[in-house]
Write a protein that binds this DNA or RNA. Sequence first.
DNA 1: GTGAAAGCGCTAACAT
DNA 2: ATGTTAGCGCTTTCAC
Lengths: 338, 338
Amino acid sequence: MTSVGNERNLTIRDVAQRAGVSISTVSRVINGKKVRDELQVNVQRVLNEMNFRPSAVARSMVRGRTQTVGVLVEDISSSYYAEMIKGIERILERTGHHPLFKSSHWNLQLEEEALQVFLDHNVDAIVVVGGLISEARLQDLAARMPLVLVGRVGVSVDAPTINLDQQGGAYGATRHLIELGHRQIVHISGPTSQEDAVARRLGYLDAMRDHGLEVRPDWLCEGDFLETSAFRATMQLIENATPFTAIFAGNDQMALGVNLALHRKGLRVPDDVSVVGFDDLPVSAYVVPPLTTIRQPAQQVGELAAHAAVSLMAGEAAQLAPLDLKLIVRESTRAVRR
Amino acid sequence: MTSVGNERNLTIRDVAQRAGVSISTVSRVINGKKVRDELQVNVQRVLNEMNFRPSAVARSMVRGRTQTVGVLVEDISSSYYAEMIKGIERILERTGHHPLFKSSHWNLQLEEEALQVFLDHNVDAIVVVGGLISEARLQDLAARMPLVLVGRVGVSVDAPTINLDQQGGAYGATRHLIELGHRQIVHISGPTSQEDAVARRLGYLDAMRDHGLEVRPDWLCEGDFLETSAFRATMQLIENATPFTAIFAGNDQMALGVNLALHRKGLRVPDDVSVVGFDDLPVSAYVVPPLTTIRQPAQQVGELAAHAAVSLMAGEAAQLAPLDLKLIVRESTRAVRR
DNA sequence: GTGAAAGCGCTAACAT
DNA sequence: ATGTTAGCGCTTTCAC
């Protein structure tokens, strides 16, 4: 049976001894440097026999690089971030780098701690997704090591930044409803402490204004990007007899909350009320009715961020292809009934 | 402004020099060992001033421990694993350990590679969730280092194993349908290459048999745990005019696929067909109608696994509290129409 | 209690 | 081309 890894804790010395060469020769063989054919073959054989693998820790120590990339997200288990992480994994795997994921749960202190851990562990690059870290701190980081920012709009940090046009996406979502004849459109936003939530709300406001539609104050609700908040907001709306024919939720999770509230109140989607979400989560195509939404290419964002990090680590400039949000029309929206 | 981490790459020598003491004294202060009060205060001040943090890599090198735990899952971005990961993060954070997550995508070779990476990086413990790694290999690993297994039923490896009674859960799901008067119950299982899928199918079969119900061959479908497969299977069932009044899907994602197919064919849930899922994903409570399902306490599983790993690393035996699956009755099931 | 020195496993000069 | 040696930054004997 082939054993996984070293039998005990073998070192390069053990290999050298067994092969009857010096440790540098073993090191050279391991690293594919020039060695006399005869020795090369012999050492390689011993290497295989002993199932030897060099210690990544020792290599990191001497090389000053660890082949790891710190990735800071709000919540690993949230669908959107999870998708992004998948993209990051895929790219880094190819380049022999290892992502180190940390969740900060929208908590500034946890973010700082995570960064500190990355620094302590001497990661070769850091990817910061969203978050509350100050611009100054990010700039500080960027000056010292490869840093890639995702979803931090409006920061002037000297680091490649990947942003999707949240405002434009929200504008498109709202316009879609308007084009279907809706005039009374509610928007349930995410928490205004988050940039994305604010940008999307702005997009909604812009679209309404551009089409000459007034926004009733009670059409603007604030949720927290989770299902329950939107569920409650929608129940409230109905109980208050607020008039509306469509709801644009700040993300798909909240759109689900909206759906359920409408269902509870005996309103049908899309016959009575049209609903649009944002993100296009994997489940969104399968809920009943399938959700019209704005697709965020989360995996691609992750891939792009990883590519940028790899470039930076190689001392090259990062190439940032523009990524687009796309309206995905499914079955939760229809022309307003006249 | 407080800077994150070291200005350049400060070492313990720089601190020693500035504080006018030896590096051992600095080391002692950092590690909270006995040092003369006067020196202690002085060194600590310099430490703070310089914003010094010891290199985790160097510490790992000399201590032989890295404070990291390798966690191998099939797919980080899958809801169920993501929840578990959250539980693992939460516990390890408290003990100062850092999880290193790897996805293996149901690919044996990727699993082996991930393990190898863990070993190379000298992780202090490994948590293997499900997967295809052979029992022999796991035993090999367990003999050499702290290893915790999750969801590997029937392996006789000398390592703490956390298992939920998948078969029992499926039995309960099926019995729930039977108690509602259903007799014609379809089961769409996950891929039979996965232990969980097989166990759940067995639970279904047991329940049917125990209640004297025959299982038509075409009531047993095999999906792949993803929405689409169940969608297709359900469409097929209806097109073949297979008689059924309820469907037990192997997981919630497939239950969503079932829902959509029923919707497409004009069948109502639960009025025409009852549907039960498995897992209780965060979204399951918010789809319309809210899904009746078997709750797997994914986060708790993660927490338990992390606790076990921590115990093992401390040289203690792991305490494994039993975790239960629970039937969550929501609105996708109702008594069969007579 | 404190400092000098050895050494964790490896790579990269530097000799040979 | 190969071996010898000096560290990488830290912890930990071991003397004092």
